[in-house]
Amino acid sequence: MAFFILVIAALLVSVFFNSLGAVSLYRFPDVYTRLHGATKCTTFGTIFIAVAVVLYAVGRLLESGENRFWVLIIHTLVAMMVLLVTNATGAHAIARASHRSGLAPAKAVVDRLEESCSRGGASQ
């Protein structure tokens, strides 16, 4: 039973962070700041969904002892690793692409990448 209370707690955390991720898309002024909210909050929230599924499977496994809950645990862990790697890398790719396409960060106090590009030093 304790496992299922943990499942509900993890799901509540995930809903909170996922909705923050969705709100940040509307609240922040430009692509880079939106990426912050969209990447970090949704990755964390979805990892908590995976954690909740794993906890649920462990609870059912202790109750019934069926092997298929082992399968559920393994596959959910694989999905979690895939999410962790692909989300961070995808955010990096979008950020780099939008900077190279000439999109300046809004309200920025400093932009070292622009400075080094215009000096002809870094990138490309």
Partner: peptide
């Protein structure tokens, strides 16, 4: 276009989360 790409990325992450939840809901791996 970048904003749209960010939104699509977020959408995809949400869909993955929903699928994980449906695995529990429908009880299928």
């Amino acid at each position: 276009v970048s904003d749209r790409a960010v939104a699509l990325d977020t959408f995809n992450t949400f869909v993955v989360g929903i699928m994980l939840l449906l695995a529990v809901g429908y009880d299928s791996v």
